[in-house]
Design a protein around this nucleic acid. Structure first.
Ligand SMILES: [Mn+2]
Ligand SMILES: [Mn+2]
Ligand SMILES: [Zn+2]
Ligand SMILES: [Zn+2]
Lengths: 128, 128
DNA sequence: TTTATTAATGCAACTTAGTTGCAATTAATT
DNA sequence: AATTAATTGCAACTAAGTTGCATTAATAAA
């Protein structure tokens, strides 16, 4: 892992992800950033932030990727909380409190987890 | 949902998925099928089988999609078991017995789930 | 069995997402 | 200020998935 530099793109992308109430996609970021940087740069900054464990990656059941801020990942970078994707408003949110319980057979070595539940979020289930 | 027809492509793809010990990707299927049908047909057959609830879709944390056979989905098509993706041999398997326990705040309406854990499978964790 | 209906397919073209190589830029160190 | 190497922009590229449309073929009706 080489020395990470504090560039405008990196700072801005990290801020956007940290301040967003929900997980952001590459497209979301590109829309917010306008021409602050090239789209390739966004991919590369995201990769860097992932390596640095400042953000984590979320895939919904259709393979759509979003990114959310990490909170206490310096010690263990195990994102064992549930992500909720709303089929109405398309938002993806971290439910940091909801950590599923389960037991794998011995011999399985766990490195990472991706739990995503889809349906209607509180906002959208109310409207009906 | 229109009437589904028993075509060669459909039959063969469903057999492949049912008989595979692990979840298969579009690329896996295309490799096995050779020129039995066009790659677009594979996409369309997969969509049909999903609609008919004969297979389910799995996305790992990187968004890679695979498909596995359903077992008792006529009543409830809720795939709340864990999928394990091995980072060594790349296999994706359904752990049909492992159903995580968790409790979402009220107001969340759940339609589907995608639980994927990555690491080393029993075969590959033994080798080290 | 023959005919009619329409689901399913193949093909080409297209869109979307992500990757790579390389020269130019710039943050951080000395 | 000069040095170093991380970062960026750009263009070209690969990979994955979608769409329109003419053709084929599974199924049902006659
Ligand atoms: Mn999260
Ligand atoms: Mn499964
Ligand atoms: Zn919503
Ligand atoms: Zn393995």
């Amino acid at each position: 892992m080489s020395n990470s530099r504090n560039t405008i793109a990196r700072t801005e992308i990290l801020n956007l992800i940290r301040e967003a109430g929900e997980a952001l996609s590459h497209a979301d970021l590109q829309a917010s950033l306008g021409d602050l940087c090239n789209r390739v740069t966004i991919y590369r900054v995201l990769d860097r932030l992932l390596e640095e464990r400042l953000i984590h990656k979320i895939a919904d059941v259709d393979g759509n990727i979003t990114y959310a801020a990490c909170h206490d990942c310096s010690s263990r970078h195990l994102h064992n909380h549930i992500h909720f994707r709303c089929e109405a408003c398309q938002s993806v949110t971290c439910l940091n409190r909801v950590e599923p319980e389960f037991k794998l057979p011995r011999q399985y070595v766990v490195h990472s987890m991706n739990f995503t539940v889809s349906g209607l979020c509180p906002k959208c289930s109310g409207k009906r």
